[in-house]
Amino acid sequence: MYERKVWVNRQSEHPARRKLTPTGNDGEYDVSRSEGIIMEDGDAFDADTMNDLERRVAAGFTELDPTGAGGGDVTVQPYTCEKKNGVYALVGNGAVGRCKIPASWAAGDSFTVNGAAVPAYCGADAVDGDTIVKGRWVLFFYDGTQLNFNGGGGLSTTKLALATATEDNVLAGNKFYAGSKTIKDGTLTLTGNVTADKMLEGSSGYADDAHSIVAGRMPNRGSWGATLSPGGVATVPSGYHDGSGQVTARPLRFLDLGVGQNFNVAAVFSDYRSLTVDNFVVYSVSSAHTGNSAWHHIERMNKSYNAASGKFNCSVVLGEYSDAYGGPTNYAYASVGVKIVY
């Protein structure tokens, strides 16, 4: 860039006044300034000042004319351009040139300038069909090693071709470019109906709003299982089960309490507090009775169990029937055989 200099005039009280001093020779004087008060020295007209001017002018020309063509070649110069076998051949002189493109661009095309192969760019990208268009005039800068074309800016077709989005994977209501300079409209809609309670804990996803993520709250039960005692019930918890859990029933176990009417279960069964009256099974009834009879039957059976004390009671009343009278003639309390089923 040319360095502009601001020149400053000399300013004094008497700018035109000079002093004549005789030299001793007849009619000969030395002339010196006698300007009075000097307000501004100004720029000297000497070798240093003029050489600095030459330096600044040369630097400006070097920037405009890096190839050293000199003269009018630093302005925009016409170049000829022909295309043959995929090569655009430019012929001409000057750092700044213009030419008319003779043929359409194709992938793999290249450039030469005065017979020398050179790379060609438009901004940060290699030139392509956006810059090199048949019948169009182009401007370029040539520094002896590369061509730099002026471009209109924006994404090139080459870069747009790298974008692979399609309408069905861009949300509806959004516009985009991909593959070409034609604007497109997204058509993708979210229609999911998943809710947090139907999604596993630690998972997340989207249902019908692309800007609102759903965090799962369904408990992960894994291989939940249960073991049931006879007659027991297990409530299956809600949530996800991985399929390996099992509900198993313990095999029936028996403890024979013997024969009697009153039993102290706490003395023989440590887990007596977990029992209910349904755990006691009567497996035999004493046939003792009084009087003569043809046969007897169970008139009543009463069972009770106190889980706090471990006491089990069972009273069985036998009724006796007579052949002669056809009705009950006697009653007796019988002993029973009892087992705990657990």
Score class of each variant (00 low, 15 high):
325 Y>T: 06
322 S>H: 02
310 G>E: 04
295 W>G: 05
315 S>E: 07
307 A>F: 10
304 S>G: 14
325 Y>G: 08
319 G>Y: 01
297 H>F: 10
306 N>L: 09
319 G>H: 01
320 E>V: 09
322 S>L: 04
321 Y>F: 15
324 A>P: 00
324 A>Q: 07
293 S>F: 13
310 G>I: 03
292 N>F: 05
322 S>P: 00
309 S>L: 08
296 H>T: 14
293 S>I: 14
303 K>N: 09
317 V>C: 07
310 G>Q: 02
296 H>Q: 14
295 W>R: 11
306 N>E: 13
322 S>T: 05
312 F>Y: 05
294 A>L: 11
324 A>F: 05
322 S>F: 03
299 E>T: 11
306 N>P: 12
320 E>R: 09
307 A>R: 03
315 S>L: 10
318 L>W: 00
301 M>F: 06
317 V>H: 02
295 W>D: 07
312 F>H: 00
312 F>R: 00
313 N>E: 12
302 N>S: 15
309 S>F: 07
306 N>D: 15
297 H>P: 00
293 S>N: 13
324 A>R: 04
312 F>K: 01
317 V>P: 00
323 D>L: 14
312 F>C: 01
316 V>H: 01
317 V>D: 07
303 K>D: 05
314 C>P: 00
321 Y>M: 08
301 M>Q: 12
315 S>K: 07
301 M>T: 10
321 Y>R: 14
298 I>T: 12
321 Y>G: 05
309 S>A: 13
325 Y>M: 08
308 A>H: 04
321 Y>W: 10
312 F>A: 03
311 K>E: 14
318 L>V: 02
311 K>W: 15
311 K>Q: 15
303 K>Q: 10
293 S>K: 15
321 Y>T: 13
307 A>V: 03
317 V>K: 03
318 L>H: 00
311 K>Y: 15
307 A>L: 06
302 N>G: 12
317 V>Y: 04
292 N>A: 07
300 R>M: 14
292 N>G: 08
294 A>Q: 13
305 Y>L: 09
297 H>D: 09
314 C>T: 01
304 S>E: 06
313 N>P: 01
312 F>V: 04
296 H>M: 11
305 Y>Q: 08
322 S>G: 06
300 R>P: 06
292 N>S: 08
296 H>W: 09
319 G>S: 06
292 N>E: 04
303 K>Y: 05
302 N>I: 13
303 K>A: 04
320 E>T: 10
292 N>I: 08
305 Y>F: 13
319 G>N: 04
294 A>P: 02
310 G>L: 02
321 Y>L: 13
304 S>F: 02
299 E>R: 15
321 Y>D: 11
293 S>W: 05
307 A>Y: 08
308 A>F: 02
293 S>V: 15
310 G>S: 09
309 S>N: 11
309 S>T: 15
302 N>F: 12
314 C>W: 01
323 D>T: 14
311 K>N: 11
311 K>D: 14
297 H>Q: 12
319 G>C: 03
293 S>R: 08
300 R>T: 15
302 N>M: 10
301 M>E: 09
292 N>W: 06
303 K>C: 04
298 I>M: 13
310 G>Y: 03
304 S>M: 09
